[in-house]
């Protein structure tokens, strides 16, 4: 029974995964472009945001159509509600990608701090991996994985703090570069927020599976997925 509805729900899930993996890819691309001062790719990432927004809206409208036409209950309702929230988070994550693109253009072609060159890709890679794992948890309805992903944010935060300190040192040593430093700090901030948004996705995955929404606060995470035996 309800084969058509089940197909529609599966299509929603597939659309979220497609959108999510594109956002994932753009996190990496944008960070690489930022490091290599590739202004063309930076510009492309800014432009790509429009399509991401449109797809997010379309998935949201599809959700609302299903609410109106299928009157979803229980597990179905939680899936649709979670998809609505998750696509919102994906769109916001891509706004951070776009933000980095704009900063990249503002910075021009000159080099950035060596420590950012060295660690920003690592930070981006952890953020991307978090998103990948969160989407995997969503696809597999894996509540255990969704609970473990947020712990990876500790590494992101540690890198953030370290790079933030480097930027502060940069300002101290070259006060006339304060505007440039400020831009770098914003780029760093964008990357760090990406991980926070991914935690929100995990919270919605848990709601979707268990029917209970709980905010996952700092320090209360379960072991990260790469520490799973």
């Amino acid at each position: 029974m309800r084969q058509h509805f089940d197909q529609e729900l599966q299509r929603l899930v597939d659309e979220v995964l497609r959108l999510g993996s594109e956002v994932e890819e753009h996190i990496t691309k944008m960070t690489d472009a930022f490091i290599s001062r590739d202004l063309i790719t930076s510009q492309r990432m800014i432009e790509a945001d429009k399509a991401i927004n449109e797809r997010r809206i379309q998935i949201g409208l599809d959700c609302l159509t299903l609410v109106a036409t299928q009157q979803p209950m229980a597990r179905d309702m939680r899936l649709i509600g979670s998809v609505l929230e998750i696509v919102g988070e994906l769109e916001r994550i891509h706004d951070y990608v776009k933000g980095m693109g704009k900063i990249s253009l503002n910075l021009g072609e000159g080099p950035i701090l060596p420590s950012l060159d060295q660690y920003l890709p690592e930070m981006a890679e952890i953020g991307r991996e978090m998103l990948y794992q969160a989407l995997k948890a969503f696809a597999n309805r894996d509540i255990d994985l969704a609970k473990r992903v947020p712990a990876m944010d500790d590494e992101v935060d540690a890198l953030f703090n370290q790079l933030y300190a480097d930027i502060v040192d940069y300002v101290k040593s070259e006060p006339e570069q304060i505007h440039r430093a400020n831009q770098l700090e914003w780029a760093l901030h964008n990357l760090e927020r990406t991980a926070d948004r991914t935690i929100n996705i995990c919270e919605w995955v848990i709601y979707m599976v268990a029917g209970v929404y709980t905010e996952m606060n700092m320090g209360e995470y379960e072991a990260p997925p790469n520490k799973v035996a």
Binding site: M1, R2, M73, A74, R75, D76, R78, G211, V212
Partner: peptide
């Protein structure tokens, strides 16, 4: 929104 019994779940989701 969150039935405890799988039968309830199956019924209310059609």
């Amino acid at each position: 929104t969150n039935p405890k019994n799988e039968l309830t779940e199956q019924y209310i989701t059609g």
